[in-house]
């Protein structure tokens, strides 16, 4: 049963991730008053990459990108998708925080071996940006974990379904806002498209990726979109819950199905908002981005944590 759930969640995340990539391009095109590519265009790209004859710079160049994808897929299993959760009971949010490291680290190792300065600059920017938003993310997660007194993501989702969504409770609204503010940075969207700046440093870490490496990288990119937004929906928007309307069928097959659909709809909503932000902003410099993150979202998050701690 668990293995079936794992396969199911892997498929859902892969498909949704690719769909997100296509959706982003389509929405961007529409904002530009263009017709835009078909929504399955990223899939065509991936198939094309996959059939190209790639260059490799060594063993770690291959291994790193595989580690990166393993890391992303592994996180998916720890996320409850609606009522589907493969093993959310194996260490909880702390494990998620740690496995989230695997993906950028694998990418960093892989592109590091390509010996391209553009890649190194991209990685350096990516790690600094990640460090700065991780300040905020950690505080957000800590305030949630302190509020709900658990480190299990599954339980946080269930407690929200029982009481009220974190985003709607006045104690946790500030962490929620902080998460929304760093969401573009986590997705790598403009104004924080600093690491993979394609015009400036030739796509940064993925500069030497072509062929199947780029295929894996694109899939990974989609998965990262999926994970970041799924984490937000789980933490703040109650996962697959919709004001308890479908409580009566929970536990059945249709209950899981409905909760999954609700979960995906919430994710799409959040994603579309991020794409809108992406469409209207130019790219910031790294210093500006770090400064922004360490000023506004961080102070909001700290106030939120203080409120949570003071009340408990």
């Amino acid at each position: 049963m668990n293995i079936l759930l794992m396969i199911l969640s892997a498929i859902i995340s892969l498909v949704t991730g690719m769909f997100f990539l296509g959706l982003a391009r389509k929405i961007m095109a529409m904002i530009h008053w263009r017709y835009g590519p078909p929504i399955y265009q990223p899939l065509i790209d991936v198939i094309r990459y996959f059939h190209q004859r790639a260059v490799s710079h060594g063993f770690i160049f291959d291994l790193g990108i595989i580690i990166s994808l393993i890391g992303s897929l592994l996180v998916v299993f720890f996320l409850p998708l609606g009522n589907i959760s493969s093993f959310s009971n194996s260490g909880g949010l702390l494990v998620i925080l740690y496995i989230l490291i695997l993906s950028p680290l694998g990418l960093a190792l892989s592109s590091g071996e390509s010996a391209n300065p553009n890649a190194s600059i991209g990685i350096s920017r990516k790690l600094i940006l990640t460090l700065s938003y991780e300040f905020v993310l950690i505080i957000i997660l800590l305030s949630l974990m302190s509020q709900y007194q658990t480190i299990s993501l599954q339980e946080i989702v269930m407690l929200q379904a029982r009481k009220v969504w974190s985003f709607a409770s006045w104690k946790l609204i500030l962490p929620g806002i902080a998460y929304l503010l760093i969401l573009p940075a986590m997705l790598g969207f403009r104004p924080f498209e600093i690491a993979g700046a394609s015009q400036e440093i030739s796509a940064g870490p993925s500069v030497e990726f072509g062929g199947k490496y780029l295929a894996l990288n694109t899939i990974n990119h989609g998965l990262l979109h999926f994970i970041t937004i799924a984490l937000f929906v789980n933490l703040f928007l109650g996962g697959g819950d919709l004001f308890g309307i479908f409580d009566s069928i929970s536990g059945t097959f249709w209950g899981s199905f409905v909760s999954l659909i609700i979960f995906l709809i919430k994710m799409i909503l959040i994603f579309v908002i991020s794409v809108f932000i992406n469409a209207v902003f130019p790219r910031l410099r790294l210093e500006q981005a770090t400064k922004y993150i360490l000023y506004y979202p961080l102070s909001i998050a700290i106030v939120g944590l203080i409120i949570v701690v003071a009340i408990n």
Partner: peptide, 13 residues
């Protein structure tokens, strides 16, 4: 996927 070609560090963008 198609087998990749090993290149040295000087064959670089």
């Amino acid at each position: 996927g198609r087998k990749s070609v090993r290149v040295d560090q000087y064959d670089n963008y």
